[in-house]
Amino acid sequence: MSAGVVSRHRSEGDGRRTYLHLEQDTLESLGTASPVAVPRRVLFVCTGNSARSHLAAALWRQVSTIPAASAGTHPADRINPGTVDAAARHHLDLPIVEPARMDDVLAPEDLVVTVCDRAHETAKVPGELHWSIPDPVDKGPEAFDAAYLELERRVRALASRFDS
């Protein structure tokens, strides 16, 4: 980890797990990035489907022609106002839709990307990729901006890996 290839942090979910993150910029400088098979759709999943998953799907739509959707394991009643505000600050086209339940949205051909630890740690979530993005809800605009920037970085990196 001292070489800057891997970072780690504790789970926001159960607090017992430690997540390791490969630093994409470092890997790309080593020439290890390669294209992967193109999925039918990318499904971003978080617990409440009120913040991170909506931001990720909207960011994905900006950089890829591959369809994207978002869902939650335990959907909230609405998109969090902080999410809407962050999208506006970053000029992101964010559709205001009702949060969806993952079981109602998931298709067998989807590439599932969990964007929160709690969703990833739910046994029924078939997360093929996991991005441990800290939950910005109830933490203020700076937390939403930090989540936005990290999601933007990861979405761009993932989209660049697919064959055209």
Rank of each mutant, 00 (worst) to 15 (best):
S53F: 08
K124Q: 11
A69H: 09
R118W: 08
A88D: 11
G72S: 05
A71I: 03
P95I: 04
S53K: 07
V112F: 02
D93F: 00
S53V: 09
D85F: 01
D93W: 00
D85P: 00
E98A: 15
V115N: 02
H130K: 04
D77N: 07
L59H: 02
R78M: 05
A87W: 07
A51N: 12
R89F: 06
A56S: 08
H54G: 04
L55V: 15
D104K: 04
I66D: 12
W131T: 09
A57Q: 13
E121C: 14
G127S: 15
T114C: 14
A107T: 04
H90S: 04
A100K: 15
E121K: 14
K124W: 07
A88H: 14
R89N: 12
V97R: 13
A107M: 06
R52D: 04
D85E: 12
D77F: 05
G82N: 01
A88G: 02
H120L: 00
L106W: 10
T73S: 11
L106Q: 07
W60G: 11
T122Q: 09
W131I: 13
R52I: 13
L129D: 09
C116F: 10
L92T: 03
A56K: 07
V63I: 04
L94Y: 10
A107E: 11
P81G: 08
D77S: 12
D104G: 01
A68G: 13
A71R: 06
E121A: 12
H91Y: 02
A88W: 05
L59M: 01
H90G: 01
P75E: 01
R61P: 03
P95R: 08
A56N: 05
E128W: 09
V113D: 10
H54R: 10
E109S: 02
H91P: 00
E109Y: 00
P75C: 01
V113C: 06
V97Q: 06
A68R: 10
A123Y: 00
P108L: 06
V115D: 08
T83M: 14
E128T: 12
P126N: 03
W131L: 10
A71Y: 05
E98F: 08
I66R: 10
A76F: 12
R61W: 00
V84W: 00
H120P: 00
V105G: 06
R78A: 13
E121S: 12
D77Q: 11
W131S: 05
H120I: 00
A88E: 13
G82F: 00
A68K: 07
E128A: 09
R61G: 07
A51S: 15
A56C: 11
L55Y: 15
A58M: 09
G72T: 03
R101P: 00
